[in-house]
Amino acid sequence: MAIKAATPYFILNGRTEQAIALYQRALGAKLETLQRFGDVNQSCPAAMKSRVMHAMLRVDDATLMMSDGPNEEAPPRGGSVSVALTIDDPDQARRCFDALATNGQVIQALIDAPWGGLFGVVCDEFGISWMFNSARVKSS
């Protein structure tokens, strides 16, 4: 069992599309995924529907992920970048999540996410935001 990736995740407070255009132009990034809040949740407020919930860019072998975030206020505690961890074992993901939460703050408890993963966000005691994604355990 190992951590499979550590990927920067930019929370851009309504500026994701501008950032995508810049990274495409400046870095030759290729847009691989773009989901809006309204694509995933039709009952979200009208002002949220067109905001980018998640975007993924490929720059050669590197991945950049980003979101407008849920509002246009100041970036969340920990700045505007989160480290997105993909962990292949859900039990290990829970252990790591809980360890970082001990003296930190749970932003999003671990949940069964709509894309089929186990997902959660925690801000550690140093103000670093960590996003966890792991496969779910299949029921027998």
Rank of each mutant, 00 (worst) to 15 (best):
L110S: 09
W115V: 11
M65G: 03
N133S: 15
P76G: 11
F126T: 11
L110D: 06
A135L: 07
K49I: 09
G79V: 04
A74P: 10
T7Q: 13
S43M: 14
K138Y: 01
V106D: 12
G120Q: 09
L118D: 07
M56N: 02
K49N: 05
R77Q: 13
I107R: 10
L31A: 02
V122D: 03
P76H: 07
T86G: 10
K30D: 07
E125Y: 08
T102A: 15
N71G: 13
F37N: 01
Q92E: 14
A62Q: 14
W115E: 08
C123I: 13
V121D: 00
P76D: 11
L100E: 02
I87H: 03
G117F: 12
A101L: 08
P75N: 13
A62P: 04
Q18Y: 02
T16R: 04
D68L: 00
A93P: 05
A55H: 00
L118F: 13
T63V: 10
Q108I: 14
E17K: 05
A62K: 11
C123Y: 07
F119T: 01
E125D: 13
L31T: 03
I3W: 02
D91E: 11
F126S: 13
G104V: 01
I20S: 03
N71K: 05
N133G: 14
N71S: 15
G38Q: 12
R95D: 10
L27F: 15
G28T: 05
P114N: 04
V83H: 06
S140H: 12
L64T: 06
V106Y: 08
D68T: 02
A74R: 12
L22S: 15
L31K: 00
G104H: 07
L100A: 09
Y9A: 05
P8S: 07
L31Y: 03
G127P: 05
S140R: 14
A55D: 01
D39W: 02
T16W: 00
D61T: 01
L57F: 00
I20D: 00
I107S: 09
A47R: 13
G69F: 10
I107P: 02
V83Y: 04
A47I: 13
T7K: 11
L12D: 00
E17R: 06
D98M: 09
C44D: 11
T86Y: 10
M131N: 03
T86V: 12
S82Q: 02
V106N: 11
A135W: 01
